[in-house]
Design a protein around this nucleic acid. Structure first.
Lengths: 210, 210
DNA sequence: GGCGAGATCAACCGATCGGTGGAGGCCGGT
DNA sequence: ACCGGCCTCCACCGATCGGTTGATCTCGCC
């Protein structure tokens, strides 16, 4: 019997998952959480075998929740279940300690197999997620794909409509430095101007809507 | 007895919804579709009272599906059920003929009430969606918020890293025209350069990742 | 039949940006 | 102790962009 905790901010998805597992005798859904903080509370109290965790949740997000669980010594396996397969999420989730990463468009039997695997500690990846991950292990781009904190700051200011000079004033640095950071950003994102850099940052999940 | 058709690309969500309605004696789920084309086929064959329709689906998207249904004389009420409440989706969906617009984070009793209302032809809006809508009816910004097809094309090319000249060649128009379109875009999005325009377009859901 | 909106183009200006080729300092890991 | 990554700064250049004004054409709507 595999004991499950479901963490997702959509009641519909929670109901869908618990309904799906209720029909299978080998699973038992022991709790549901609507945000990251609740997920941590319930995980500590219930010690489920597997936690199905969405990444985007109000309040504490899933990524921070995974890290927090590891710190508190909760040994439950975490299976990330989300809509996005962008670079910006997959790698951090694995690093934070997730046992698997599935997309919500997975068919139900794939989901059931994934939970069984996760319960035994075997890592699980959606095919498309595996693709994404491979492309960044195979190529030595791993470091090239992550912007430094400063570079990200500059890019955010540019995305907000600031000129190089304005961004420089916000950060208390010279315009020349801003230009240097941006040139580095262009190289890392493989683009050649600020507009494309902003677009690519959204595509990779480095910048998030609103 | 209210007959339902569920159209969503996530099997989990479909299962969740059909499970939820199966538990209620007054509803009957008569079909499920994984994309827009299938939704249209099933809607024509089954003539359900209400269609729960996701907007982002592979192949034909939900918006086009709603329009297509209206053209074919299918009288089923369409209740849009999606994750996004961005300006870019709400207004077009209503215009296309949706009876209601709900967010997936709605609690289940709100969803049940919404479907009953929709079945009777009464319009339904999530509170946050209503907010979004109000802000664009009250203000005369309504026309200002939508980019013309041509403007959107230009913006997409810019987001892909094209210069004005390159975008002009792609569209077989002059560079001057591209600049004019972009200036219109800046005015509509209330920004002052291409980078900010790209960012704002992502925020409003006018441009979508990958 | 006119009116507005969208799409198209032109010429011109100053401001900004992208690119190059440097340079130095600070920090953490080998 | 050294190397590499990150952050900082400078000067210069041509290319591009943002802004302005004004113009023509087509289409759908009233």
């Amino acid at each position: 019997m595999i004991r499950l905790l479901i963490a997702d901010d959509h009641p519909i998805v929670r109901d869908g998952l618990s309904g799906m597992f209720a029909a299978e005798p080998e699973f038992e859904v022991v709790g549901q959480a609507g945000d990251g903080a609740e997920a941590i509370r319930l995980a500590e109290a219930l010690r489920p075998d597997v936690i199905l965790m969405d990444l985007q949740m109000p309040g504490m997000n899933g990524l921070d929740a995974i890290s927090a669980l590891a710190e508190r010594g909760v040994r439950s396996r975490v299976l990330v279940l989300t809509t996005y397969d962008t670079d910006g999420y997959v790698v951090p989730a694995i690093e934070a300690g997730a046992t698997g990463y599935l997309l919500k468009d997975a068919p139900r039997d794939e989901l059931l197999r994934a939970v069984r695997s996760a319960a035994e500690g075997r890592p699980v990846l959606s095919p498309s997620v595996a693709d994404t991950l491979m492309n960044h292990v195979r190529a030595p781009r791993a470091p090239e794909l992550l912007l430094s904190p400063r570079e990200l700051e500059v890019l955010q200011l540019v995305a907000s409509g600031n000129t190089n000079r304005e961004a420089a004033r916000h950060l208390f640095i010279s315009e020349a430095t801003v230009k240097t950071h941006l040139l580095n950003v262009y190289a890392k994102l493989d683009v050649s101007d600020r507009a494309a850099a902003v677009a690519e940052a959204y595509n990779r999940g480095l910048l998030k809507p609103s």
